[in-house]
Structures are given as structure tokens and as C-alpha cells.
Amino acid sequence: MYMAYTNTTNSHSLHRSANTSKGMTLTSGYTKAIVRFVLLAIILGTVFSFGAIVQAYAGDPAATTTSTSQTKQVVISEVSQIVVTEKIVIQRGDTIWQIASLHKKNGENIRSYIDKIKTINHLTTSSLQEGQVLILPGS
């Protein structure tokens, strides 16, 4: 703000100049604040909607392939028992619950079957990786 002194008789007083608003006006300050707020809202909206899209496609079973590649193997133990084991290759989107529900015996508890899968494959968690080979308990 520009302040000017004027010389009058014996008194010095401050007078405002006619050009007091050399910088921002009050309305342009509000306008800039509103524009910044709108831009921030747009950026945040874009970031959050991108995250929601990724989350939706990551959890959508229709967007992922759930077929598993299967091979059967015959293992002959020392007692001459034939045990048929099944190996599957984990595909994108497969879960241990889904695999257990497809391959368990009728009437068998799915949680106990998952425990058997984890024991045979030396798993400490239920996390599976694409391309991982799982050995399923024999029938």
C-alpha cells in the first residue's frame, strides 16, 4: 500500500494515495483460492477414481481367468499303495478357498482341506502367486 505524506502547516498527517491497490484486489484473491480448490478437487477425484477402477478390476472374477492347469501324477510308496496326487498351476485370480472348494471330497470340511493343502505345500499363509504349482491332497 502506498502512503504519502503531505506538508501542511505545522502538522504532518498521513494520507492515502488514490492508487492504493497496486497488488491483488480482494475479489481476485478469492478467485485464485476458488480456482486452486477446484483444481485440487479434480486432481484428488482423478486419483481416487483411478484407485477404485484398479481395485474393481483386481477383485473381479469375470476379468480374470480362473481355469487351472492340471496334471495328475501317480506316486508309489514303499507299502505298494497307489496315491493319486494332483498338481495345479495357479492362474491369476485363483484363491486357495476356490481351489479347495473345487477339489475337496463331498462332505469334507473346506477348512480342513485348506489346512491339508497348506501342510503338503509347506505354506504358512493363504497367499498364492501366479505360476505357483500346488500339490493337492490325494483321494
Results as ranks from 00 to 15, higher is better:
residue 30 Y to W: 08
residue 58 A to I: 03
residue 78 E to K: 12
residue 4 A to W: 03
residue 135 I to E: 12
residue 134 L to Q: 11
residue 73 Q to W: 08
residue 123 L to W: 08
residue 82 I to S: 09
residue 93 G to Y: 00
residue 80 S to G: 10
residue 43 I to V: 14
residue 90 I to G: 02
residue 45 G to C: 01
residue 121 N to R: 15
residue 23 G to E: 14
residue 72 K to A: 15
residue 55 Q to T: 15
residue 18 A to Y: 12
residue 3 M to G: 02
residue 55 Q to D: 12
residue 90 I to K: 00
residue 7 N to L: 14
residue 47 V to Q: 03
residue 87 K to Q: 14
residue 31 T to N: 05
residue 132 Q to K: 02
residue 18 A to C: 11
residue 114 I to T: 07
residue 115 D to M: 10
residue 17 S to C: 10
residue 33 A to D: 10
residue 65 T to L: 03
residue 59 G to C: 11
residue 52 A to F: 09
residue 22 K to R: 11
residue 139 S to C: 03
residue 66 T to I: 04
residue 79 V to K: 13
residue 18 A to P: 07
residue 98 Q to P: 00
residue 117 I to T: 05
residue 110 I to Y: 04
residue 95 T to H: 01
residue 26 L to R: 14
residue 7 N to S: 12
residue 53 I to G: 08
residue 94 D to P: 00
residue 67 S to Q: 12
residue 111 R to E: 15
residue 22 K to G: 08
residue 81 Q to Y: 10
residue 112 S to R: 09
residue 44 L to K: 03
residue 17 S to A: 11
residue 54 V to N: 06
residue 108 E to S: 15
residue 137 P to A: 00
residue 89 V to Y: 00
residue 97 W to C: 04
residue 120 I to K: 11
residue 20 T to G: 01
residue 21 S to G: 05
residue 113 Y to C: 01
residue 91 Q to T: 13
residue 24 M to G: 01
residue 86 E to Y: 09
residue 132 Q to R: 02
residue 130 E to N: 04
residue 24 M to R: 15
residue 62 A to K: 08
residue 122 H to A: 13
residue 105 K to Y: 04
residue 32 K to E: 14
residue 111 R to V: 08
residue 13 S to P: 00
residue 134 L to M: 07
residue 83 V to R: 12
residue 102 L to H: 06
residue 84 V to N: 13
residue 97 W to R: 07
residue 1 M to G: 09
residue 37 F to P: 01
residue 15 H to Q: 13
residue 103 H to K: 14
residue 115 D to Y: 07
residue 99 I to Y: 04
residue 49 S to I: 10
residue 87 K to M: 07
residue 111 R to C: 02
residue 42 I to E: 00
residue 31 T to W: 09
residue 28 S to V: 13
residue 131 G to Q: 08
residue 34 I to T: 09
residue 77 S to T: 14
residue 61 P to N: 02
residue 54 V to E: 07
residue 1 M to S: 08
residue 111 R to K: 06
residue 80 S to A: 14
residue 14 L to A: 03
residue 72 K to L: 15
residue 106 N to E: 15
residue 18 A to N: 14
residue 71 T to V: 10
residue 76 I to A: 12
residue 119 T to V: 11
residue 53 I to E: 13
residue 70 Q to L: 13
residue 23 G to K: 12
residue 24 M to W: 05
residue 35 V to M: 12
residue 2 Y to E: 10
residue 14 L to Y: 03
residue 42 I to N: 00
residue 67 S to V: 09
residue 67 S to M: 05
residue 124 T to G: 04
residue 114 I to Y: 08
residue 61 P to L: 04
residue 82 I to W: 03
residue 115 D to H: 10
residue 64 T to M: 09
residue 70 Q to T: 15
residue 122 H to M: 06
residue 87 K to T: 05
residue 44 L to Y: 07
residue 4 A to N: 08
residue 120 I to G: 07
residue 118 K to M: 08
residue 65 T to Y: 01
residue 61 P to F: 01
residue 78 E to Y: 06
residue 45 G to S: 07
residue 120 I to F: 02
